[in-house]
Design a protein around this nucleic acid. Sequence first.
DNA 1: AAAACATATATCAAATCGATATATGGCTAA
DNA 2: TTAGCCATATATCGATTTGATATATGTTTT
Lengths: 191, 191
Amino acid sequence: MNVRTLCLGILTFKEASGYEIKKMVEEDVFGHFIDASYGSIYPALTKMMAEGLVNVRAEEQAGKPDKKVYAITPLGRQELAAALLVDPAKDKFKSEFMFQIMLQEYLPKEHVAQIYQSQIEYLRDEIEKIRCCVDHHSTHPSMSFVAGFGEASLGAGLKYLEDNKDAILGGDNRDLKIVQPMDQNRKQKNA
Amino acid sequence: MNVRTLCLGILTFKEASGYEIKKMVEEDVFGHFIDASYGSIYPALTKMMAEGLVNVRAEEQAGKPDKKVYAITPLGRQELAAALLVDPAKDKFKSEFMFQIMLQEYLPKEHVAQIYQSQIEYLRDEIEKIRCCVDHHSTHPSMSFVAGFGEASLGAGLKYLEDNKDAILGGDNRDLKIVQPMDQNRKQKNA
DNA sequence: AAAACATATATCAAATCGATATATGGCTAA
DNA sequence: TTAGCCATATATCGATTTGATATATGTTTT
């Protein structure tokens, strides 16, 4: 599934500018299972405009740059329906945090503690955001369903991190740290 | 975090060929939070070879093509440690399935039922795979931790799909009844 | 008054993907 | 039996996508 289909799908819910599509993709319910950058959204909209899948309306705004508000056309809906019929790709979950945890022996203890706590707070924020989304979009049942899924998955992940804090950050830590003897006649090689 | 760091991190656990790294990235515990294709892995290994971050050993195999087994060097470990110190990027979860569910009104009912069932089976498979991984790598505690996280998250997602089957596939799609899971995090809000 | 930030569009080098090419051998169904 | 497919293995390349940056303007914060 490419950025074209992504934009068409979003324009199904409401007409929007490229900027607004990007915001929805990173903040709204969408943000939890799709992603795209300006560098792909703007060219996609321009191209789809030329192909008649969307149309534009320039909107003047007081105190802000003009907005190009895009709306999906019947032809666009046709292409969307065709694109959606393709079997969905496997889910993809990327977490640099988990990669770092897996390689924690290469990181200072305090740093691991810091990123662990940040991750917990990040997950709490995300879950809170989803709950706000559900309130806003409670009219659309599919959105509530999707939001519920995100809440369930992230909630379980958060709980796991909270419950297993000690497993990673446990008090007396392992043999990882090499303690150098206090020898005043010798300069320390390692900081 | 780029493919270089990814490869270095994996080579930390055992020396491997590009082909094996790709397999680990899509099948092993790794597969649940990182990803990379041949098109990025092979060039990364070649370049890191030239920079002295890894070294190669050609391995002849009976009945199979020769294997280039890469191993991380002390210099490679140094670069890895530096790269890991950078704050991890936000988690990224992509699910074309969820996108399709959100736009289910554009899809035939039977097709929605089909992809829904496929998703459930896919999640069951993934969870099963993780459990196998844990058995294999039970020696490495960080791996067990990471695998446990994946199991918790995916498990909650699977349960959600199983519990809310009727909400999406039930006789009348317009009357969605979403079963919210018992959520311990929600309680904290009022506490 | 300066700095930072939000809105808004746009571009582009660099990174990455996804598909394909090449080669070898084992397995298996017509 | 042999043609077709699958697994191992490396490599390349066009197309897509990212991530950073440029430009313009107004508001809010320091």
